[in-house]
Simulated scan of single mutants.
Amino acid sequence: MDPALYAHGDPFAQWRWLRANAPVHWQPPAELPGFWSLTRYDDVRTAYRDAETYSSAQGILLRPAEHGADPGGGRTLALTDPPRHRRLRALVDEWFSVRSIRALEPELREITRGVVDRALDRGNVDFVADVAARVPLYVICQMMGVPETDWERLYELTSQAFGGGDPLTRRFAHLEILGYFETLHAAKAADPGDDLVSVLATAEVDGERLSPDDVILNCDNLLVGGTENTRIAAAGGMLAFLERPEQWQELVAGRDLLPSAVEEVLRWTSTATHIMRTAVRPVEIHGRTIEAGDKVVFWLPSANRDERVFDDPDVFDVRRQPNRHLALGFGEHFCLGSVLARVELRLLYGELLGREVRVEPDGEPELLDSIVVNGPERLPVVLKRTD
C-alpha cells in the first residue's frame, strides 16, 4: 500500500509471495478501508465475471475512508452494475466497435504521424509527455467533439490532473476538466454533432435524459479511460523495448509480430495496478469467507504474471502465444476502448518501425509513485530519423 514501492521497489516479489502463500489476503483497515486482495489469475478472472456478487457501484479504486463515497458511484460506465451499466454502455458501444475504429484508422494514423513528426523535430523528448500521452488524448478528443484548438489545453490539464506532483494542483486541474465538460455539454445539448459528447447530451436511459452531472462525469470517465492507460502502456512498452533491444529487433525483422507484441506490452505493463469491487453477498475463495459489504481488490499486474497461467511470466516476449491477459479487464466491465487501445499502440509502434526511427535512452526513467496506475512518469529519449 506504499505508493513508493511502485516507483522504487519491487511489488512483484510481494505479489509472488501472496500468490503462493495467501492468494486471498485480508488487509486490516488503516488510512484505507480494510479489503481482501486477490492475486491469482483464475480468482481475478472469476470475480470479474461475477457481477452479481462483486459490485462496481460503490467505487472501483481504494480511497481513504475520510474521502467518502466516490461521486461517480452508480452514475458512470465504470461505476455502475447491470442492468444500468449495459444501458449506459449501449449508448456509446458502437463508437468503439471494430467496425467504427477501422473506419477511423486513417484519421488515427494521421494523428499518430503528426505526433511522431513533432517529436522527431525536437529530437530530445520525454516519450511519456511528448509521444505516448498525446496520441490517445488527441484521438479521444476528436471522438468526443472537442475542438482541435482545445486539445493542448486538455493535454496540459490532464498532465496536471493525472501525473505526479502536488495533490492540490492535481485536484484543481481535475475540477477545471469537469468545468470544461460542463461547458461542452451545454453546447452539444443545444447543437448536437456527430460525437460522443453529443450522444451523451441527448441520450435517454430508462426513458429519462441523463442529468448534466451524469453527462459530465461520464465525459470525464471517457477522457481518463481513453488516455491514461494507453499513455502508460505505450511508454511502459517503449521502456521494455529500450531495456531489451533484442525484442525491438524482433519487430524490425518481422512486422507481422506487431499484434502479439501489443498484447505482450499490455500484459507486461498492466497499467491499472488495482481494481476494486464490493461484495454484495458472502462468497468463499480458497477457504476464506468474504462477507457482504467487504471490499475486494484485484491486483492485475499480479494476475498477469501468474506462473500457473503464463510460461516464464517475468520474461517480456513479443512472440508470446497464447496471451490471455487481464490488462483490459474481463466480463461486464471489459474495457470499452480495448479495440481503440490496441490500434493506438499498433499505429504508434508501427509508425516508429515503418520510418526506422531510432529511439535511444537520454537519462534515467522515473516511475509513477501511485497504487492506482503503474509505469513511467518520465522517459527521456532521443529520437533519430533514418528515413
Rank of each mutant, 00 (worst) to 15 (best):
P29L: 13
P29W: 14
P29A: 15
E31N: 08
E31H: 07
E31L: 10
L32H: 12
L32C: 05
G34S: 05
G34F: 11
G34D: 04
F35P: 00
S37H: 04
S37Y: 07
L38Y: 07
L38I: 13
T39D: 00
T39A: 09
R40H: 09
R40M: 06
Y41G: 01
D42W: 07
D42Y: 05
D42E: 15
D42M: 11
V44H: 01
R45G: 02
R45L: 10
T46F: 01
T46H: 05
A47I: 06
Y48V: 01
Y48C: 04
R49K: 12
R49W: 06
R49M: 08
D50I: 04
D50Q: 03
D50L: 02
A51N: 03
A51R: 08
A51G: 05
A51K: 04
E52R: 15
T53M: 04
T53S: 12
Y54G: 02
Y54M: 05
S55C: 01
S55G: 01
S56K: 06
S56I: 08
S56F: 08
A57Y: 01
A57N: 03
A57P: 00
Q58R: 15
Q58H: 15
Q58C: 11
G59E: 08
L61D: 03
L61Q: 14
L61M: 08
R63E: 08
R63P: 00
R63L: 08
P64F: 11
A65P: 00
A65S: 14
A65R: 13
A65H: 03
A65D: 03
E66C: 06
E66Y: 13
H67Q: 09
H67M: 05
D70G: 00
D70R: 05
D70K: 00
D70F: 11
P71W: 14
P71G: 12
G72K: 00
G72E: 00
R75S: 08
R75V: 14
R75L: 14
T76S: 13
T76H: 08
T76M: 03
A78N: 00
A78T: 01
A78L: 05
L79H: 11
L79I: 04
L79E: 12
T80R: 12
T80E: 04
T80F: 05
T80Q: 09
T80C: 13
T80A: 13
D81I: 14
D81A: 13
P82L: 02
P82F: 03
P83V: 11
P83I: 13
P83Y: 10
P83T: 14
P83N: 09
P83A: 08
P83L: 08
R84K: 14
